[in-house]
Computed example of a mutant assay.
Amino acid sequence: MTLDELSDDVQDAYSDLGSDLDVSLDRETRHELAMLVALFDPEDTDELVRRAIHVLFQSSLDRGQLDFHLRQGYDVTYDEYLSGMTYEEMTGQSQAPPRDDVRRYQI
């Protein structure tokens, strides 16, 4: 897969999500959410879910898990996704002529 395919998949997922998301909670998750609500006393539980998504995303990015999965699935990194170019495109390697190893050491 490629950077373009990743961009298309992110756009598709973004449009599929919409602005509201219904989430079913198991017993453990409900208990943990109740603990966080009691601790942080937010306006509504949606704020805690938003925070949780940010924390999960940031920790996946910091630990390299995001890049690992992006490299496996799309052969790009998050930095490449953000810039819209692969490292080869950024450094001009994709446009460089092929090396001639036979003549490389001739003067």
Rank of each mutant, 00 (worst) to 15 (best):
E47T: 15
L56M: 07
D100Q: 01
Q58E: 10
L61K: 01
A52Q: 10
G92I: 06
T91Q: 11
F68P: 03
A13D: 12
R99S: 02
L70H: 01
Q58N: 07
R71V: 07
E89I: 10
L61G: 01
Y74W: 03
M1P: 01
E89H: 08
R71P: 01
D67M: 01
L3E: 00
Q11L: 07
D9K: 01
A38W: 11
D79C: 06
F40Y: 09
D12Y: 05
E32R: 13
L48N: 07
Y81W: 14
D16W: 02
Q95M: 13
T91D: 12
E89T: 07
T86P: 00
D44F: 03
S60F: 00
T45Q: 14
V49L: 14
M1K: 06
T2Q: 13
L25N: 08
Q95P: 04
V37M: 09
D8I: 14
F57A: 09
S83L: 05
S83R: 03
E80C: 05
D12W: 05
L17G: 00
D62F: 09
A34M: 12
G92K: 03
D22Y: 08
E43P: 02
D67T: 00
D100R: 03
D75F: 07
L6V: 02
R104E: 02
D41C: 15
L3P: 00
V10D: 02
Y14P: 02
R50Q: 13
V76D: 00
E80D: 04
E5P: 06
D12C: 10
D22T: 03
A34N: 15
L66T: 01
Q65N: 06
L39Y: 14
A34D: 10
P98L: 05
S83D: 04
Q65V: 03
A52K: 12
E5D: 02
L48P: 06
L21H: 11
A96P: 08
T29D: 09
L39P: 05
L36V: 03
L61V: 03
H54Q: 11
G73Y: 10
D9I: 00
V10C: 09
V37S: 13
H69N: 12
V76H: 00
D20G: 06
T91L: 10
S19C: 06
L21T: 09
D12N: 10
P97A: 02
D100N: 04
L70I: 00
V102K: 10
G64Y: 04
S60A: 06
V23D: 03
E47M: 15
M90K: 14
D79W: 08
L6E: 01
G18S: 05
M35S: 08
D26R: 05
E89G: 05
D8P: 09
D4V: 12
S59V: 02
D46K: 13
D41A: 15
L25Y: 07
Y81G: 02
D22R: 04
R99M: 13
S15Q: 13
E88C: 07
Q106T: 07
F57N: 04
V55D: 06
D62Y: 06
D44Y: 13
D79T: 08
G84H: 08
Q72D: 12
V10S: 06
D100G: 00
E89M: 09
I53P: 05
S24L: 09
